[in-house]
């Protein structure tokens, strides 16, 4: 493990550390949080950093560190589940289309092309406005928005593999579609599929944060980082950390994932040469 990390480029290693850090916060954040959530711990709203509140306090005088640690679960968790769902569905459909070909491919590709032409934020707004906002709804909406993209990327990768002769050999042996997808094609495209997952994860984080900032995402009393920015936007006038810190959290998470993804993509192209 150690050897593996030291062989990564510094930027990739930094990305990996940031991603691991936020993943850990999403998992254990509430246990580490210094104050019980919701408890107003100070009369001072928009307070600067202090010993009791290392990241200051929010518009109700709550500890910002606690709020961010608890929010990590919503931002990272919801985005991960939504992206995972989008990638899983997109990849499965794409592998199926590329392997079976013919009509299946044509129909699937047309359908998903139609979906991709919807503007994503507008679609999300319409759904949330008509059905109301809940965590399952947000996950489903984000997943639906990002399935076509994942499908397109994976299908483009898979059709190249399907044309290879080892796939023909397996077909001639009489292998079923599922085996071809799972054993022959998927192992040769995992790395770019993971890269694609990372990129899509960033978009989903930004989409969900954007929705929350508009007040349509995770609803109070729960809060993800996007809602934290929104809640504390008035603090901007006082230069309070309360508005900067959640924005910073979003920024570090997306940059971390981006660095990691770049590293993976570079490795695949033999980019770092050793």
């Amino acid at each position: 493990m150690n050897a593996g990390i030291t062989r990564l480029r510094p930027a990739t290693a930094a990305g990996l550390l940031i991603v691991l850090f936020w993943a850990a916060m999403a998992a254990f954040g509430p246990l580490l949080a210094p104050h019980a959530d919701g408890g107003v711990m100070s009369a001072q709203v928009f307070d600067a950093a202090s010993r009791a509140a290392p990241l200051g306090t929010d518009y109700l005088g709550r500890d910002m560190l606690t709020r961010i640690l608890i929010g990590a679960r919503y931002t990272v968790g919801v985005a991960a589940v939504a992206t995972g769902l989008a990638s899983l569905v997109g990849t499965t459909l794409a592998l199926c289309a590329a392997t079976v070909g013919g009509w299946t491919d044509a129909v699937l590709s047309r359908l998903l092309d139609a979906l991709i032409s919807l503007p994503s934020l507008l679609f999300a707004l319409v759904v949330v406005a008509s059905v109301g906002s809940s965590i399952p709804m947000l996950v489903a909406t984000a997943a639906v928005i990002y399935v076509p993209g994942a499908y397109r990327t994976v299908r483009a990768l898979a059709v190249n593999i399907v044309a290879m002769e080892f796939v023909k050999v397996a077909r001639a042996r009489g292998e079923g579609t599922l085996y071809l997808m799972r054993a022959e094609i998927l192992p040769n495209i995992v790395l770019p599929v993971l890269t694609d997952f990372g990129l899509r994860f960033i978009y989903v984080v930004l989409l969900l944060s954007g929705l929350s900032f508009l007040g349509l995402g995770i609803q109070p009393p729960y809060a993800d980082w996007g809602s934290l920015v929104r809640e504390n936007i008035e603090g901007l006038a006082y230069g309070a950390p309360a508005v900067i810190m959640p924005a910073l959290a979003i920024a570090t998470l997306t940059i971390g994932v981006n660095l990691l993804v770049d590293g993976l993509a570079g490795r695949r192209g033999g980019g770092d040469g050793r």
């Binding site: 290879m164 002769e165 080892f166 054993a183 022959e184 192992p187 040769n188």
Partner: peptide
């Protein structure tokens, strides 16, 4: 080489 799955 094209007839052998590079991942197997």
């Amino acid at each position: 080489d094209m007839a052998l799955n590079p991942a197997h």
